[in-house]
Design a binder for these strands. Structure first.
Lengths: 132, 132
DNA sequence: CGGTATCCGCTCTGATACTG
DNA sequence: CAGTATCAGAGCGGATACCG
């Protein structure tokens, strides 16, 4: 095992724990919840997309960041890269089964946040005016 | 409304869309999924905690970052801060109902990621050895 | 205990330019 | 189209010091 934390009592818990600083799951969580990682996975949930399609879908991402994000997600086994040696080149990105599981939970979170925005914005106004 | 993007056709979609660069929901999503935001909300799901309890629970966070994170989450109406004017001071942080909804989805994601780590780590080895 | 203020390095980010 | 390379800067984040 790769954990750097607990002797693992072999009980009902996961052997990985994001709350522990040295746990490898924390890094993966950061790829997944990162600024562009979350949106990239969310965008791919509907189906496979090409690089520039993805770039348009994830409004505001630069080529560099999208490329970097995609590499991290591919390395973690969440996204599959399919390159066709045609000219011009065509590369499709799609979720792996693992990535699909992650994206599902991510979208549940995203939709909940979107649906909560009226409440969030109201809370902000209260907060700001309280210490104006 | 505060959206900066679409005329809002009044259909079945949310009026907010994180994929749009200027949508305010994107900022909130970043607070929630941020490096410390996700862990803080997750830690508070089990119940209210004091500042230093939280600091110990979220392994690796500095005072500054925890404080900053808590302010952002409080402003967004996800965390409630309860200060008691005793000596020594005692301050409890707890989730609001909205925060509870967010934390639930977040924990589903976190647990899924933790449970996927063996697969992730295996994928990484394949990826790395493929281009060693 | 529960913070805030300040300093400062280092990473992350976005433009820009270039390649296959 | 699908990237990589390079560079400058903004801000993230940690360490330290200090306050109520």
């Amino acid at each position: 095992m790769t954990t750097t934390q607990e002797p693992s009592a072999g009980l009902d818990e996961f052997p990985y724990n994001v709350f522990a600083k040295a746990c490898p799951s924390r890094g993966t969580l950061e790829h997944v919840t990162g600024r562009w990682g979350a949106l990239t996975l969310g965008a791919l949930y509907e189906g496979s997309l090409r690089f520039n399609e993805l770039r348009r879908r994830v409004d505001g991402v630069s080529e560099k960041m999208l490329s970097q994000t995609l590499h991290a997600l591919e390395r973690d086994g969440l996204v599959h890269r399919e390159a066709q040696p045609t000219n011009p080149p065509r590369v499709d990105y799609e979720l792996t089964p693992l990535g699909r599981g992650v994206a599902e939970r991510l979208l549940a979170l995203i939709h909940f946040v979107e649906g909560s925005m009226d409440g969030v914005l109201a809370a902000r106004e209260r907060y700001d005016s309280a210490r104006a």
